[in-house]
Design a binder for these strands. Structure first.
Lengths: 151, 151
DNA sequence: CCGTTATAGTTTCATCTGAAACCATTTGCA
DNA sequence: TGCAAATGGTTTCAGATGAAACTATAACGG
């Protein structure tokens, strides 16, 4: 008996991980340098940019971050005056998070930059490949999220 | 003027990151539980399983890890008696890394498990989607690695 | 040769992160 | 009601990680 062939370079989880880290790192560096914004903070900002006034719990759901990470990101954003927090009327445990004017300004600057990054990445693929990628990510996403839900 | 539409859930770098982390985390948990093996250690082990007797520098290249991470992973593997290190004849700075019998045994157990994980993931896609995914990852990988090389 | 520069690898330090414990409040139910 | 369990969120602690400094050796250029 001999061990099965496992070429790390062709191993899907490995490739996904390296590719994703490379992409994220490049973006993270730019956000950090230009806006003093970490990736976690950026995610929170992005969600609040579209869903203003939601609770931390909902931010966590929409960013796939855990509540600890959200708590810390929000604390940082508040310190920089980019996010404002109030207590929910109907439940005093819940917070109501919203962007400040400053936060909206940062969002308005970063969002186009993020979209440009995405376009840059997709520019390496033709239209057909882009469609397949979307479809494949949808399927894998749904499958993994379901898996996660079960465990 | 109003800010452009940015839906985090549909943003490619975000989706790649979450998907990859979900997959990696599931695998990491299992390796940790069953073999006391971190992901970085597993990568080193995987490379040494195929290229025995290489230097740490080459391990770093083949795993997309930096030399610090490799150094630490190797230290851990050596402590557990899974990897052995010698000094290269032709260059006393270089190490010659190899799996011990114990290391080979772990590799022989983990490798099939890793391949099973990959199959499980790919099972959510049909044959055509799998071909496209490979092709797309190849292209993105090459493009990003080239980008990285330039910076 | 000899001194500068480059390379292989390790260590240190400061930061980040996840897990568990924790506090406050609300919900479910006897 | 009132008390146990659940929920939203923060804090604490320990381990992981990245960047820069460091050690040892080799390569290069005069």
């Amino acid at each position: 008996m001999h061990t099965p062939l496992l070429e790390l370079e062709r191993f899907l989880p490995y490739r996904l991980s390296v590719l994703s880290n490379t992409v994220s790192l490049a973006i993270a560096r730019e956000y950090e340098d230009r806006f003093a914004l970490s990736i976690t903070q950026w995610r929170v900002l992005a969600v609040l940019g579209r869903y203003d006034g939601i609770a931390a719990r909902e931010v966590a759901e929409r960013t796939a971050m855990d509540k600890v990470a959200v708590s810390r990101a929000v604390a940082g954003l508040m310190k920089d005056g980019r996010v404002r927090r109030a207590v929910a009327d109907h439940d005093k445990r819940e917070s109501v998070l919203a962007l400040t004017a400053k936060g909206r300004k940062v969002y308005a600057e970063v969002a186009p930059l993020a979209l440009a990054h995405e376009r840059r990445l997709l520019a390496h693929l033709d239209a057909e490949e882009q469609r397949w990628l979307t479809r494949i990510l949808d399927k894998l996403w749904d499958a993994e999220m379901e898996e996660l839900g079960r465990s």
